[in-house]
Nucleic acid binder design. Structure first.
Length: 374
DNA sequence: AAAACGGGGTT
DNA sequence: AACCCAGTTTT
């Protein structure tokens, strides 16, 4: 736990504006808020699943996954009792698989310690894997009506503009001030709708670039708009340059099957199924069983940028020798047609697609959950 | 091709 | 407080 900085004090004027903000936000939400599936329920489990999926992922991408996931795992208990590989298979293509693993681990805690219901207690919620300040505030306010803020990136940006927070976003001080403002703004009545309204405003109107101040329900209260600073706030935090990593992979094919192994140890993609790979350029370094594979000469290269890391991955297609046994457990031959249900990391999905292994693009379903040809 | 985005975990 | 995790969209 990081050392807690002192709570910023708010002026009475800031408190007055925060209260007025909420009234206008709720009006905006009632008029213009999107009608999304997870807004038609107060089931804490459904709210929770939606919030996890919506982390780092767009609404249109989440929609079909949300429907399929809840069909497969309709309750916390069903999720807790499922095999982790089945949960990851439902998540395949959504990315950030740690979210799915945390969600299931937390579901098991909820069943074991909280009677199968997302805990109403703040500290209990925060103790769940994958549940931080944002997630706890979102579920408790939306599902249980608790007067708690839920500040995601959209809300953070909108608040920084309205209350003219000029510091670098992401700095400890700016975050603390924004959180205090968010707390002051949440009403006792409809706290969940208020939180969603603020995020909706950030998503639809108070966008990172070219915010639509002309149609903003909160414009009269906005310190940034008043001064024409809406594009200058929030100030981004300077980021370190991306580090580059070079890796090599072997895509070993045998008839209609392809070889994958489970990534072991700590670090990236731990526990996921991947093509055998290693850092560097040498195909020998990927650790294939001896005499298993001979390169066919087909090579594909992908560049994958993830936050502050760049991965340059060179994949060699190989043909498998007959009759070479695999080590136990960590290795698997999968049908190429079944590869799409495997939680492959994004660069490996790209490789599979380039080699014609029948992987559809990530967004494989439309909003109705109907499969497309590809 | 490069830059931008962000919530949670760990130490 | 600094660093780790690791997918897509926008410029």
């Amino acid at each position: 736990m990081p050392p807690r900085s002192p709570k910023p004090r708010l002026t009475t004027d800031a408190r007055r504006r925060a209260a007025e903000l909420s009234t206008r936000l709720l009006g905006f939400y009632d008029r213009e808020g999107r009608d999304l599936p997870w807004r038609q329920t107060k089931d804490p489990y459904r709210v929770w699943v939606s919030e996890v999926m919506l982390q780092q992922t767009q609404v249109v991408t989440v929609l079909p996954y949300y429907a399929r996931f809840l069909e497969a795992f309709p309750t916390v208990r069903a999720l807790a009792e499922s095999a982790t590989d089945d949960v990851l298979a439902m998540w395949a293509g959504l990315g950030y698989y740690g979210r799915a693993r945390n969600l299931q681990a937390a579901a098991r805690v909820v069943v074991a310690n909280h009677g199968g219901v997302f805990p109403r207690d703040w500290a209990d919620a925060l103790a769940l894997p994958g549940v931080g300040r944002y997630m706890a505030g979102a579920v408790l306010s939306i599902a249980f009506g608790q007067r708690l803020p839920a500040v995601d990136g959209n809300a953070e940006r909108a608040l920084a503009r309205v209350f003219l927070v000029r510091g670098h976003i992401g700095s400890g001080r700016a975050k603390a001030r924004i959180h205090a403002l968010a707390e002051a703004a949440v009403p006792a009545d409809r706290p969940g709708d208020h939180n969603q309204a603020l995020m909706e405003l950030g998503a639809l109107v108070c966008t990172p670039r070219a915010p639509q101040c002309g149609r903003c329900a909160v414009r009269e209260l906005c310190g940034a708009a008043e001064r024409g600073l809406q594009e200058a706030i929030p100030r981004p935090r300077p980021r370190p340059a991306a580090r580059a990593v070079t890796a090599v992979a072997a895509v070993v094919r045998r008839d209609s099957r392809v070889l994958i192994r489970r990534q072991s140890g700590p670090g990236a993609w731990s526990g996921l199924w991947v093509f055998p790979h290693a850092e560097g350029h040498e195909l020998d370094a990927v650790g294939l069983p001896a005499d298993l594979a001979a390169p066919t000469g087909r090579v594909v290269q992908v560049r994958h940028t993830v936050m502050q890391r760049r991965i340059d991955l060179k994949a060699h297609e190989c043909r498998a020798a007959q009759g070479v046994a695999l080590p136990q457990g960590e290795w698997r031959w999968v049908k190429a047609s079944e590869l799409e249900a495997v939680a492959l990391p994004a660069p490996h999905r790209k490789v599979a697609r380039l080699l014609g292994l029948g992987l559809p693009p990530t967004r494989l379903l439309d909003a109705e959950g109907v499969e497309h040809a590809g």
